[in-house]
């Protein structure tokens, strides 16, 4: 009997998950269908699940008028994601190794330093001052990822993962004369692969989705990422449509077409949507492995 009970439960969960997935998918389907519809029919009849008057005009328009900008922003996003992820993973694992290594007296102090920033932060203003005045990150490529290279949460995740690697392996390496650098690069990193992939994915996602750093630190269009380009476009439309614009002389600016907004959304989501199914198993595995010790 238990087997059928389980089956019943399983079916129930599958149904729940299916319903939930459908709910998550609806906006995305609307966006895709919107981007493939003609502007006039969207304006007249609203959105639908199936494109109204199927056409690729919007994409032609986007790539025709803004191709250069979109491609540049796309490549900037790619560069930032790759560079950012590499740097972040290196810094994070190094820190994680330091606080997880056995016999290091100050490791708790270091762990506390990191932990402290999870509880208290200096706020936006000091952060902005530090980034622009002292580190001179304004309008630089580095400014687009350096502030995010150490996520404390992911660092602890990784430290936990390192702790799960049997200490005997490290010990035997030390007996053979390996120093910390060698242990870190030749033992911890290869053995920590799953954890590494997990945090890389988290970082990659964060860098890809980020529009805050460009908003704060970048004014040069060459450095716009695709998310910021999107944000900029939407922000301008919403502000102008909200009526606040009346304060500043009643500026009239034609907002981009409804379908263009949708097409931009699809373009932004696309790479992640394609990549996700292949990598998602690492996410789950990584978190579980990191959380269970031994």
């Amino acid at each position: 009997m238990p087997a059928t009970e389980n089956k019943g439960l399983l079916v129930f969960f599958y149904i729940c998950i299916a319903v939930f997935s459908v709910i998550c998918l609806v906006p995305f389907v609307l966006a895709v269908s919107g981007s493939l519809s003609t502007e006039s029919r969207i304006a007249a009849e609203g959105y639908s699940f199936w494109p109204r008057g199927f056409s690729l005009e919007t994409y032609q328009f986007l790539f025709g008028s803004k191709a250069e900008q979109i491609i540049r922003a796309y490549s900037m996003s790619l560069v930032v994601t790759v560079l950012g992820t590499l740097t972040a993973v290196l810094v994070t694992t190094a820190y994680a190794y330091v606080i997880s290594v056995k016999g290091f007296r100050l490791k708790n102090v270091f762990a506390f330093f990191a932990y402290f920033t999870m509880l208290f932060s200096g706020g936006t203003l000091p952060w902005y001052l530090l980034s622009t005045k002292y580190y001179h990150l304004g309008d630089t490529l580095l400014g687009l990822f350096i502030p995010y290279v150490l996520s404390v949460f992911l660092m602890f995740l990784m430290a936990n993962y390192f702790r799960s690697i049997p200490h005997e392996i490290v010990e035997s390496a030390q007996i053979d004369g390996a120093g910390h650098l060698r242990i870190f690069f030749s033992i911890m990193i290869p053995l920590g692969r799953v954890g590494l992939v997990t945090i890389s994915l988290f970082y990659a996602l964060q860098f890809w989705n980020d529009f805050y750093l460009p908003l704060m630190l970048v004014t040069d269009q060459e450095l716009y990422t695709i998310q910021y380009l999107m944000y900029n476009m939407m922000a301008n439309i919403q502000f102008l449509a909200s009526g606040n614009a009346a304060h500043v002389g009643g500026a009239i600016i034609a907002p981009p077409l409804e379908t263009a907004k949708m097409a931009m959304t699809c373009l932004t989501v696309l790479p992640i949507a394609i990549l996700y199914p292949f990598l998602q198993s690492f996410f789950v595995k990584g978190i579980i492995v990191g959380s269970v010790k031994g």
Binding site: A94, Y95, Y97, G103, L106, H180, F184
Partner: peptide, 13 residues
């Protein structure tokens, strides 16, 4: 060992 790992993390940061 302690000093070396301290150095390592400091160097990276």
């Amino acid at each position: 060992k302690g000093w070396i790992s301290l150095l390592l993390s400091a160097v990276f940061l």
